[in-house]
Design a protein around this nucleic acid. Structure first.
Length: 456
RNA sequence: GGCGGCGUGGUCGAGUGGUUUAGGCAGGGGCCUGCAAAGCCUCGUACGGCGGUUCGAUUCCGCCCGCCGCCUCCA
């Protein structure tokens, strides 16, 4: 399988530490606010990658951290007059609630920063002892100039980094590029003991410690969104390098969600929360929309693009209803895979090419057309089998198809029955009136050879 | 200033050195249907600009224009 590797700047063959197992670390959220579409995208992109490994029968160890202590959490706690751990708990719950709605698999491990403080202190101690870190009046810093190859991940030349481009330079540091390992706390702030004084760990230290501890040296994939490449991931590498620890083998970064061409972010205040989106759209539409574009490209997520995805999804669901109603005896999934191996080969070929999910969605819609055409021509069984292929592919990407008529309530069922009766009596006026009523209730009626079908 | 990326038909969004098309959505026409819905068939010939390489470039190279990202916390 080929994946783009940020460090190499090109698509390369993915090699695994252990041939049957994939170890991946994906930087998780800092829990101080509800997740927005940008979070949804990266979580979905990496969920899709993970599920594809599962489809290929790899064992996947998926680690994604929860940053539950940092400046923003403290700030939020102060604003709301709450404890930092209350804020963290609230938004961690919100995170997993929304992730659940998006059908994102839970990480194998979700380590919390606050559970790894001792290990972080140990790492910082080693860095200080090895003379890679120094102390100032407000904390411990890593001295970047001592790191060989600093900048290799992000392709940055240390000398040409424009320090202080948009932020004030901290005069206490030896170099503006040096970054915090341990931040000494002010009296009112949450703090943990360390040989350097009471304080809290720097963000970049968290991820190195937790990834190496849970996955071990030389783990396979480290992921995140593109804004983490520099300095966050570069700084993680720097710490591992300083301690001669083998770090991630392969770096995967996904693109941003954009709003009118600009990055969606908290600071630009142009974001939409996942909750807001889910109030008006099927969560599956977001997944489909994300599958239809490449994970490294910027993606506009708007009312219009989501409505488009809603409609496209309806096409998939409608095929699902159609073949489900036939009540056919279909071969099991593994037989389907054998019988229609060429479609699965096509699927894998696309996915193996740096996750070409847009090509896969194109394949999915072509298969749907093929299945429908067959069924229209009386080849119901073959059509249903082709549809089964499609369904397996969709589900392997976390896209579940469903029949909304399963949610029918008795009142609606009664209306449907009355309309059927009217139609049998050729009382089309009455039948159409009922159909209009159903439409007002949000139900669309389909009269099919197998009876009346109603769906959202 | 350094590094990285983008500019595709009404729209979203892939991809590719050339013969036949990504795909979705929207739209036109048709079949089917009591009418619809769903489905099927069908129509629309696009790749920012200027050069270069080539038998041939949207696809490679150079330059230019426009846009965006990172160099601060950021998914």
């Amino acid at each position: 399988m080929k994946l783009y590797d940020t460090a190499e700047g090109k698509v390369t063959e993915l090699t695994l530490r252990n041939p049957k197992e994939v170890s991946m670390y994906v930087c998780g959220p800092t829990v101080y606010a509800p997740p927005h579409l940008g979070h949804g995208r990266f979580a979905l992109n990496f969920d899709i990658l993970r599920r594809y490994f599962l489809y290929l029968n790899y064992k996947v160890i998926y680690v994604s951290n929860i940053t539950d202590i940092d400046d923003k959490i403290i700030q939020r706690a102060n604003q709301e007059n709450k404890l930092t751990n209350e804020i963290a708990a609230t938004y961690e719950n919100k995170w997993f609630e929304d992730m659940g709605k998006l059908n994102i698999l839970k990480p194998t491990y979700s380590p919390h920063a606050t559970e790894y403080i001792e290990a972080m202190v140990d790492l910082i101690k080693k860095l200080v002892e090895a003379d890679y870190a120094y102390e100032t009046e407000d904390g411990i810093y890593l001295e970047v100039s001592k790191i060989q190859n600093y900048g290799f991940l992000s392709g940055q030349d240390v000398n040409s980094l424009k320090s202080g481009a948009r932020v004030e330079i901290n005069e206490k540091k030896k170099s503006p590029l040096d970054f915090t390992l341990w931040k000494l706390s002010k009296p009112s702030e949450p703090s943990w003991p360390s040989p350097f004084g009471m304080g809290r760990p720097g963000w970049h230290t968290e991820c190195v410690v937790m990834s190496l501890q849970l996955l071990g040296e030389g783990f396979d994939i480290h992921g995140g969104a593109q804004d983490l490449i520099f300095p966050h991931h570069e700084n993680e590498v720097a710490q591992a390098t300083a301690l001669s620890q083998k770090f991630a083998k392969h770096w995967v970064h996904c693109g941003f969600v954009t709003v009118s061409g600009e990055k969606m972010s908290k600071s630009l205040n142009n974001y939409t929360t996942l909750e807001e989106l889910l109030a008006f759209h099927d969560a599956r539409s977001l997944r489909l929309l994300i599958l239809q574009s490449h994970y490294r490209s910027p993606l506009e997520i708007t009312k219009e693009t989501l409505e488009t995805a809603d409609n496209a999804l309806a096409r998939l669901d409608s095929a699902y209803r159609r073949f489900k109603d036939q009540h056919l005896d279909l071969p099991d999934n593994s037989s389907i895979k054998t019988m229609y191996s060429k479609y699965f080969e096509e699927f894998e070929l696309a996915m193996n090419n740096d996750l070409d999910t847009p090509k896969v969605t194109s394949q999915i819609f072509n298969l749907i057309s093929q299945a429908n055409t067959m069924a229209d021509n009386g080849q119901i069984q073959e059509g249903a089998e082709i549809f089964a292929v499609t369904k397996i592919i969709c589900e392997s990407l976390g896209l579940e198809l469903k029949d909304s008529s399963e949610e029918l309530d008795p009142t609606t069922l009664d209306l449907v029955a009355k309309r059927d009766a009217a139609r049998i009596n050729k009382d089309f006026k009455a039948a159409d009136e009922i159909r209009n009523r159903l439409a007002l209730l949000g139900w669309t009626v389909e009269d099919t050879a197998l009876g009346t079908r109603v769906h959202r």
